[in-house]
Design a protein around this nucleic acid. Structure first.
Lengths: 254, 254
DNA sequence: ATCCTGTAATATGTCGGAGTAATTAGAAGA
DNA sequence: TCTTCTAATTACTCCGACATATTACAGGAT
């Protein structure tokens, strides 16, 4: 039996751009429509205030039922992208109403050509939050946290960041730090952003050399957290974010 | 004609606890169901992994159509609270999948008795982000930003924080700062948290005296931003967050 | 000019049925 | 006894038609 591609997520449209996904496990029609519309909105195809085609017209265009369309609209509404009112239709809301930190919204934003300004904003936020997270982790980590970080670090060394296994280890390392902060809000926030940003760099991977060997910088973060030194941990993490920014910038421009 | 209560938001259940909202402007059935279920989940009434009643059974219980129930489930799914799979039913996801920073999720979390630990997490996040926002605002504000802050400050003085108008002015002041950072991600994040937290303190308002006059502390923030002093701005904003924490803590305990 | 008032356009809510997929249990084989 | 395959069950998924409610807009009245 042919193994399904596990990276193909729920709601993705197939390669031909048709809205109707392959009928199979994990594909849902309203998810595909939400994905399509979400990407169109995030990529600036609709301006705030624009009215989407009405329920009936839209459903006929795409040859799907109104139910599927309406459920998709509920998803977009839940994320603050659109608002539906009788007679007025479904309008795209102004950008300040969007839940920009929603994981799916971030994914849609990064699916096309991501807006440079928005990427800058996200990295600015990371540069604020992640060092602070490292600081808290240095204060609150216990033995188990350190073991997780250490293991992830070892895995990063074994595979390099050029491999998927290596990048997974990188994610594990950062997740271990976030977990050590004992702060769910912080974890949710950083996980959302990190996933989106890492996805881009992975997606846009070219066979280019990384600007510099990232392992020593990660080790410095680990050492500071293990030593329970909040200031050093924050500083070391700041370096890591800067590196990621450089990396992403070169990936987007080059 | 009797003016409708504008504070009554879409999706709120009426006072009898019935799911069916008063038929009127801005009330939608699926919104009311999502609100009810969301609050139940956030308040810990369902444990992660719990299965909700099936579509048919649930819809019959509440005497609503399956369509309305399904659209509500789509909203919860979009916020990462539940996951639906054929045969398996609709399950509550583990907490780390929840979009805790979604405005509605925050509202649901604060609608009942908010979890003390979660409130602590949110204030920790605010204490990280808001001073940094003030720092950026000090670097990037222009004349218009300053005028907005100044006006809001004047309004805060006129009405006090005891009145709704005064609290609105407070929100305007903070929004003006956020706008001055020129960072949409930062704005979205802080606005979400701020709205939820302010809502609680307002909701739980008692005729108690504020711990101290907050105006001078706000003025200090304004002065630092106007002077373009990032360090002082961050520090002054830190004081403001601490004050809000004290205020909220006393409101929740007392 | 402003305020009503009617109407058409559009979303919202409902219903029942057909289709699909995953769990579960039971049967068959090693 | 354990494993593997098969089939039934069950709950979600999608559909399309119908009925209702709301409101933007236009046209008339004040």
């Amino acid at each position: 039996m042919v193994k399904e591609n596990p990276s193909l997520q729920d709601g993705e449209t197939d390669k031909e751009g048709s809205v109707r996904p392959v009928r199979g496990p994990g594909r849902r029609l309203h998810g595909a429509i939400a994905h399509k519309l979400g990407m169109a909105i995030l990529s600036g195809q609709y301006q705030p205030g624009d009215t989407l085609s009405g329920e009936v017209a839209f459903a006929e265009e795409l040859e799907v039922s109104r139910s599927a369309y309406r459920e998709a609209i509920q998803v977009l509404t839940a994320k603050g992208l659109v608002e539906s009112r009788p007679k007025a239709g479904t309008r795209v809301l102004p950008r300040n109403r969007w839940n920009l930190l929603d994981p799916e919204v971030l994914a849609w934003a990064f699916a096309g050509e991501p807006d440079v300004q928005f990427v800058r904003d996200l990295f600015e936020l990371r540069a604020i939050v992640e060092p602070a997270a490292a600081r808290l982790a240095a204060q609150r980590r216990d033995k188990d946290d350190l073991k997780l970080m250490k293991d992830a670090l070892a895995a990063m060394r074994r595979h390099t960041l050029a491999t998927e296994a290596g990048r997974a280890a990188d994610r594990d390392f950062h997740n271990a730090i976030l977990n050590a902060t004992r702060n769910d809000a912080l974890l949710t926030l950083t996980a959302s952003i990190g996933a989106a940003v890492n996805w881009t760099t992975q997606y846009k991977q070219r066979a280019r050399a990384l600007p510099r060997n990232p392992i020593p910088d990660h080790v410095r973060v680990y050492d500071a957290i293990a030593a329970g030194d909040p200031v050093a941990a924050a500083e070391a993490m700041g370096v890591l974010v800067d590196l990621a920014l450089e990396d992403t910038a070169s990936a987007m421009q080059g």
